[in-house]
């Protein structure tokens, strides 16, 4: 009985987000990624109440939605996962009657390999994974992944690597001249040996590292561009490098779920964030670019001039899209990773 009473009061308290309510929208996005001002403006303009729920990884989000019964309308997965979302029918094509701002997407982000012609998704934010270096410790060329996987003496023992298996593997494979999902055994063997040799020089494999860089715990690492910019703004010894052998470009994209209870509201929201001014709000909050033409004009000054955000032309071509590798390749990566961390 007590439990029933508990459930009843729980229902009152927790489920403001019940399906099908008029004027509702349930957004399922990465944590600390959604500028509250966007939601306020959207509500002011349309009267639609937005409920924001966070996820912490692509795998969590995919697992949640696959199982059904989730009640979400919009999800924001990364590029490498989009094909899975589409092929499993989890997200629906954009309604071009409502989403009229598609033309605002910058041409280079329109025909992306994971969603050619933007049938299903629109850009939310994009960035790169590169290296961050304390230039007061190491003053050589910073556009090299070798700083991390074959580190010079002054950086040894002061390196942090984000624990993202796919990014780290990708950069090591590019270093050895391989393709992202290569099955070439010699390349993979070289990758493993390089990583095993580099591991003793790594101090940590840690995400929440902005403070640790600022405080001087780490002198170099594999890191995301936006986070590196946060580090630099607090400690200008740090600089962000783009490995010339190849570095991952990634993009998080908003899409409407197939079983969205508030489909039309979701399409309206998608259209809403395609406005340059709104997209700039995303960038100012998340510290990543957005892929919408004309949004630069509304961005903070420090974003517009940041070398982490604006890739120099000669380094741009080394950037490569990620790719979800086939299970058997991913298995090899996991095995190497497990060996590395055992």
């Amino acid at each position: 009985m007590k439990r029933l009473a508990g459930w009843a009061s729980a229902a009152l308290l927790g489920s403001t987000a019940l399906a099908n309510a008029e004027g509702m929208l349930n957004l399922y996005n990465w944590g600390n990624y959604t500028n509250p001002e966007i939601l306020e403006r959207f509500t002011a303009e349309t009267g639609i109440q937005v409920t924001l729920t966070d996820f912490d990884s692509n795998d969590t989000a995919l697992a949640r939605i696959r199982q059904g019964g989730h009640g979400f309308d919009i999800v924001v997965p990364s590029d490498t996962y989009i094909q899975t979302w589409i092929s499993e029918g989890l997200i629906q094509p954009l309604d071009r009657e409502i989403v009229t701002n598609l033309g605002n997407i910058a041409p280079q982000w329109m025909d992306v390999p994971f969603d050619p012609g933007r049938e299903y998704t629109v850009p939310w934010a994009w960035g790169t994974t590169g290296v961050i270096v304390d230039t007061s410790v190491y003053d050589g060329d910073i556009n090299s992944i070798g700083l991390i996987i074959d580190p010079p003496a002054e950086l040894q023992g002061r390196i942090n690597v984000i624990p993202e298996m796919s990014d780290v593997m990708a950069m090591a494979i590019y270093y050895h001249g391989g393709e992202r999902c290569t099955t070439d055994r010699d390349t993979l063997r070289a990758v493993r040996d390089t990583l095993m040799a580099a591991k003793p020089h790594w101090l940590a494999l840690d995400y929440g590292a902005v403070d640790s860089y600022v405080a001087g715990d780490f002198a170099a690492g594999i890191y995301w561009n936006g986070a590196s910019m946060r580090v630099r703004l607090q400690n200008d010894n740090f600089a962000y490098g783009y490995p010339e052998t190849g570095y991952p470009i990634w993009m998080d994209n908003a899409a409407v779920l197939t079983d969205a209870p508030n489909r039309d509201n979701a399409m309206k929201f998608i259209n809403f964030v395609l406005q340059p001014e709104i997209a700039a709000l995303i960038s100012n909050f998340a510290r990543y670019s957005n892929g919408i033409t004309g949004s630069e004009a509304f961005m903070d000054e420090e974003m517009r001039t940041a070398p982490e955000i604006n890739v120099a032309a000669e380094l741009a071509e080394a950037g490569r899209w990620g790719q979800a590798c086939p299970q058997e390749v991913n298995d090899i990566h996991t095995q190497i990773w497990t060996e590395l961390m055992q």
Binding site: G31, N32, D54, D56, H70, G71, G208, V210, A286
Partner: peptide, 20 residues
Amino acid sequence: KSAGQDTLPTYMLGQLRRTV
């Protein structure tokens, strides 16, 4: 959790990759 049922720890978890 369903939509709109984040708790303090899950909210924190979402921030972990970015800055806390």
